[in-house]
Design a protein around this nucleic acid. Structure first.
Length: 282
DNA sequence: ACGCCCGCCTGTAAGC
DNA sequence: TGCTTACAGGCGGGCG
């Protein structure tokens, strides 16, 4: 659900809304959401008194470098607040008095009574503070929008990989940020089948894949991400995204392919649904 | 670093 | 009507 475009939408808004702000209060009711920490008190102690330097992103992870320890003589320049939304995580900006949604697990209180709330029904997401960014994020591969400059760099990554294209796109160690929804949209735009071994792509096909990846992700960010029927994805203001209107295959089983009018097919691979046009994608 | 399954979770919807 | 089942899919771990 939240993939690169949704996380990037959240990142941009949070950076604007919270950059430079000081964390004054922390409450963590959901133990599972802060499972990397010993307990809520230890988690809170790592955050209270610190400021949000900026809000960054790597793949689907939000990275928030923290400044200004309350012990000014003992700053911890490496401390970073890391947030992963998992399947159902939301980050919502609210006023202190606003009603609290069900499954609100972590609340960061800022000066002026504003709050950042982490809501996550299925608790696959997590929030943690680390001074060792490498251990948790170093395994992530290239960010498709930040780190890949041209199609030849994509060709290098694909070289010698026998993995099928879709699992390859979704493997965060190769590329970071693409999940089930956007891999289907990217592969349709590139006219490539999900099960093509990665190493078999011709240069022309790699170029198509690169262009499609860049264009789809940027268009999805421009539309503030995708909210599906459950409207689980919300931006920090609680609004849904709009990119679902432009989905061409995802969730459109039986509908006409936008290119050739043949019915979109749904197949099960690796336990998850893949949507494609068997005529257009080869 | 292949391909696949499982476990972790809850909300929703389809099926009987 | 109400119960059961399937599905949604991020990620880490484990197996052959």
């Amino acid at each position: 659900m939240p993939e690169l475009p949704e996380v990037e939408t959240i990142r941009r808004d949070l950076d604007r809304e919270l950059g430079g702000k000081r964390i004054e209060r922390v409450t963590a009711g959901g133990v599972r959401s802060i499972r990397r920490h010993r307990d809520a008190a230890e988690f809170a102690a790592a955050l209270v008194g610190r400021t949000v330097k900026s809000v960054g992103r790597r793949g689907k992870y939000l990275r928030i470098p923290l400044g200004g320890s309350h012990r000014e003589d003992e700053p911890d320049p490496e401390a970073t607040l890391v947030i992963h939304l998992g399947m159902s995580g939301q980050l919502l900006l609210a006023a202190a008095g606003d009603a609290t949604a069900r499954h609100t697990h972590v609340v960061l209180g800022f000066d002026g009574g504003r709050e950042l709330r982490f809501v996550d029904p299925r608790t696959f997401g997590e929030v943690f503070v680390t001074d060792d960014q490498t251990r948790d994020l170093a395994r992530l591969g290239a960010d498709p929008l930040e780190d890949l400059r041209n199609w030849t760099e994509l060709a290098e990554l694909l070289h010698g990989r026998t993995t099928k294209l879709k699992p390859w796109l979704m493997d965060q160690r190769f590329l970071a940020g693409i999940g089930n929804l956007y891999s289907d949209e990217i592969l349709f735009a590139a006219r490539l089948r999900y099960d093509r071994p990665a190493e078999t792509l011709s240069p022309a096909e790699v170029r198509r894949l690169f262009r499609s990846m860049t264009e789809i992700l940027q268009a999805a960010i421009a539309s503030r991400g995708s909210s599906l029927a459950d409207e689980q994805y919300r931006d920090v203001f609680g609004a849904i995204g709009q990119y679902q209107r432009q989905h061409r295959v995802y969730g459109r089983e039986g509908e006409a392919c936008p290119r050739c009018r043949r019915a979109i097919v749904r197949v099960k691979t690796g336990g998850r649904s893949t949507f494609l046009c068997v005529r257009c994608q080869r």
